[in-house]
Each structure stands twice: as C-alpha cells, then as structure tokens.
C-alpha cells in the first residue's frame, strides 16, 4: 500500500547497474508535472515555510491550493510543479521535515484525479445575439453562474486544456475577464488521512507514520 507516498526507490539499484538517479544523474531525468499533497497543522507562517523551500531553489510553483481537509484542524495543500522526480522527491522530504507538516505525498498525473475551476465573464448582449455562443459554452460543460444585463459569468471545471480551450473560444466574443483556481487533486490510491492521524497522535507511532520509501516498495535495496 501507499505506493503514492514520498518515494519510489531508485529502480535500477536492484538490477545491478546503479543509475545514480541522484544529484548528478538526476539532471538528465525528464521534467514532468507533479502534484505534491501536504497534510499540515493549521499554523500561521507555515505557508511561507513551505513556499520558501521552492523559492530558495528557484523553482516556480505552478499552482497552489490550501484548504481545511476532511479532518478538523488539519489542512491540505496541493502544490503543482514541473520538475524531475529526483527534485520533487527532495522537495517533498524538505517539506515533510517541517515541524508542523504531518505527511507529504507526490504524484504524477497518472496517479491522481484533478480539477481546476474557471470563471469567464462575457458581455450578455453578444451571448444573447449569437445563439451559437451559448451552444459552444454548453458543449464545453460551462454553466452560467450570474446573468446580468451587462455581463454573464460562466463557470467550468476541468483540466487545464479544457479551461484553456474555452478561453480561446470566448476570446472572439469579447471575453472580459477570466480567472482560474488552483488545482485540487485526489490521490487515486489513498485511504485518506483519518486513520493515519490517529497513528501520529501516539507517542510511539508505528510503521504507518514512519513510512519508508524503499522498504514499503517491497524492493531489495541492492544486489551484490
């Protein structure tokens, strides 16, 4: 279980020829989108503590969402970066090291279900005149949130490409304003955090808390 936690062993180490995915070897690794999920205490200043882990390394945060989780007093961050796995693993470990951080997971897009919400403000008269616009909106899963004489606000939820596509569609019709939320993501292969939190509350937590990326993967560390 928990193949989605901070981790993934350097796969090649068991095959005899260490690929040294670390520091130097890591530079050739391809960058891709990773979503980092962080469970934290609700603490003033923690956002800054987490943000500077990225800024110190001059890494751009593509998207950041923070909100209360399903558990009272526990917050959940979703942070999206475009980086190599090696870098993301190191970032995740630095985040997990912070006193008020309970747990960090990082995942590629394959491991998660995610959505972003977008709002589009367009002139009402154009929508009213051109029936085709409304059809386009509905085809793109948008719904009207507010309809006023002067403007209408549509909302849609989806992946980046989907919300982007609608911008392109609405641009010729006088799109006035656009805003998109940060990504929120659910990890496919997770049991949530309730049970884990109870483990954390114990003075001597078990293996669940001190997960170990190498051993939990069930992989041998080396062959000689």
């Amino acid at each position: 279980m928990d193949s989605n936690k901070i981790n993934i062993a350097p796969a090649s180490l068991s095959s005899g020829e260490p690929a040294r995915a670390g520091t130097d070897g890591g530079r050739d690794e391809a960058k891709q989108e990773f979503t980092i999920t962080v469970y934290t205490e609700n603490q003033i200043g923690l956002l800054n503590r987490i943000a500077i882990i990225f800024t110190r390394r001059k890494i751009n945060i593509h998207s950041l969402n923070t909100s209360p989780s399903e558990i009272e007093s526990i917050h959940r961050f979703n942070i999206v970066v475009q980086e190599t796995e090696d870098v993301v693993r190191k970032l995740s470990r630095q985040i997990e090291k912070q006193v008020e951080v309970l747990k960090v997971y990082f995942n590629t897009n394959d491991d998660i279900i995610w959505q972003e919400m977008a709002l589009y403000k367009v002139p009402t008269d154009i929508i009213a005149e051109k029936a085709s616009v409304e059809r386009l909106l509905r085809e793109n899963g948008a719904r009207a949130v507010v309809i006023r004489k002067d403007y209408t606000v549509f909302e849609t939820t989806g992946h980046r490409e989907e919300t982007d596509a609608l911008i392109r569609i609405l641009q010729p019709f006088g799109l006035i304003e656009f805003v998109r939320s940060a990504r929120v993501a659910i990890i496919k292969n997770s049991d949530g955090f309730n049970r884990k939190l109870r483990e954390f509350e114990k003075a001597e937590p078990g293996e669940d808390v001190n997960e170990n990326e190498y051993l939990n993967k069930g992989q041998r560390i080396f062959t000689m």
Binding site: G22, T23, K97
Partner: peptide
C-alpha cells in the same frame, strides 16, 4: 537521523535511517 539527507547529494545504496 534526518531522512532528507539520504540521497540529497550522494546516491545511497543502503540508507540506514
């Protein structure tokens, strides 16, 4: 004692946390 030190600079064969 600090898991974030493992593999930070040098790739470890056996990490003894």
């Amino acid at each position: 004692i600090d898991p974030s030190e493992i593999d930070k600079n040098v790739q470890t064969t056996v990490p003894v946390w």
